[in-house]
C-alpha cells in the first residue's frame, strides 16, 4: 500500500472508530448502571437517523443546527424508552433477563416499524457541503470523515467532563458500583437513571445522524451499532475509556483491512478476531480494576 493511501485509510479508520466509540459509550453507560445489554440503543439510533433526515431535508438544511436538534431528540427518545419499558419492570424488581428481552424487543419493533412504513426506499441526507474533500499535500481527506472525528472527539470530551465534574455524573459513576446506596446520600436514583438514558440517547442521536449522513438511511441502520457493542465488550464492560480505545482500534483495523483484502473478507476476519481476542483477554482491554472491600 502506498504511504498516502495508508495514511488516508488510517484517518478514515479512526474517524469511523470515533463513531464506534460513541456507540460503545452509549451502550456501556446503561450496562454500567443497570447491568444489562441495552439493544434498544439501536432503536434510538434508527429513529434519530430518520428524524435527522426529515428535519434536514424538509425543515431546515443546516448541518450543525439539525445535528443539535437530532441529538436532543435522541436524548428525549432514550428517556421515553426508559420510562415506557424499563422503569415499570425495574420498580417491580424484575430479573435482568427481562430487561434484555425488553431491549431486544424494542430494537426489533423499531426496525420492523420502519421496514413496514419507510422500508421501500433509501433516504439520502441532503448534501451539506459543496466540496466533499480537502487536499493536504497528496492526501485527500473526506470532509464527512473529518466532521465525524471532530464531533465524536468533542462529545466524548464533554461527556468526560460531565461524568468527572458534575454531581449527577459522580452519582452515575457511584451507581455503577452500587445502585442502592446512593439513595442514602440523598440521590434520587430514578432521576440519575433518566440522566443515564438521556446521555445514551444523545450519543445514539449523534450516531444515527452521522451514520445516516455517511451511508443514507434504511430500516436496518440501527444494526450498525453492533460494532459499537463489540467495542464496548472488547474495551471491558464497565470501562467507558476502554470502549473508546477499542472503538478506535476497531475502526482503524477495519479500514486498513478493507483497503488490503476487500470489505466482505474484512468483516469475516474482524468477527473471528474478536473471538480470539476475548479468549486471550476475557476481561477486555481495561477490565475491572478495583475490588470492593467488605
Amino acid at each position: 500500500m502506498e504511504l498516502n493511501i495508508l495514511l488516508q485509510q488510517i484517518f478514515n479508520g479512526i474517524s469511523l472508530g470515533g463513531v464506534y466509540a460513541l456507540e460503545a459509550v452509549g451502550f456501556g453507560i446503561i450496562f454500567n448502571i443497570l447491568k444489562f445489554s441495552n439493544f434498544s440503543h439501536s432503536g434510538v439510533v434508527a429513529i434519530s437517523a430518520y428524524f435527522g433526515f426529515f428535519v434536514s431535508r424538509y425543515i431546515y438544511t443546516h448541518f450543525l443546527v439539525t445535528l443539535i436538534i437530532t441529538t436532543l431528540a435522541g436524548g428525549l427518545i432514550g428517556v421515553i424508552i426508559e420510562k415506557l419499558i424499563f422503569r415499570p419492570i425495574r420498580l417491580k424488581g424484575a430479573p435482568l433477563t427481562l430487561f434484555l428481552v425488553n431491549s431486544i424487543t424494542a430494537a426489533m419493533l423499531v426496525q420492523q416499524f420502519f421496514a413496514a412504513t419507510l422500508g421501500d426506499d433509501y433516504y439520502p441526507y441532503p448534501v451539506f457541503m459543496k466540496q466533499t474533500s480537502i487536499n493536504i499535500g497528496n492526501l485527500t481527506i473526506s470532509k464527512t470523515y473529518t466532521l465525524m472525528l471532530i464531533i465524536s472527539g468533542l462529545v466524548l470530551l464533554l461527556l468526560t467532563y460531565v461524568l468527572k465534574r458534575t454531581k449527577v455524573g459522580i452519582a452515575l459513576r457511584a451507581a455503577s458500583t452500587d445502585i442502592r446506596t446512593p439513595s442514602l446520600m440523598g440521590v434520587n436514583i430514578d432521576f440519575v437513571i433518566s440522566v443515564a438514558f438521556f446521555i445514551a440517547g444523545v450519543l445514539g442521536g449523534i450516531t444515527g445522524y452521522l451514520l445516516g449522513m455517511t451511508y443514507s438511511v434504511d430500516p436496518f441502520i440501527g444494526s450498525m451499532i453492533l460494532k459499537g457493542i463489540i467495542a464496548a465488550i472488547i474495551g471491558g464492560m464497565g470501562s467507558l475509556g476502554g470502549g473508546v480505545i477499542a472503538g478506535l482500534l476497531l475502526g482503524g483495523a477495519e479500514c486498513l483491512l478493507i483497503a488490503e483484502i476487500g470489505s466482505s473478507l474484512t468483516q469475516i476476519v474482524i468477527y473471528s478476531g474478536i473471538f480470539v481476542l476475548l479468549l486471550i483477554r476475557p476481561e477486555g482491554i481495561a477490565g475491572k480494576r478495583y475490588i470492593i472491600k467488605a
Binding site: K167, I170, R173, A174, D178, M185, K293
Partner: peptide
C-alpha cells in the same frame, strides 16, 4: 458501602448531594 471506584473526595461530594 463506600463507592470503591470513585475517589475519596468524590465519595464525600456525593454525601453532600442535596
Amino acid at each position: 458501602k463506600i463507592f470503591s471506584s470513585i475517589t475519596v473526595k468524590e465519595n464525600l461530594i456525593l454525601g453532600a448531594y442535596q
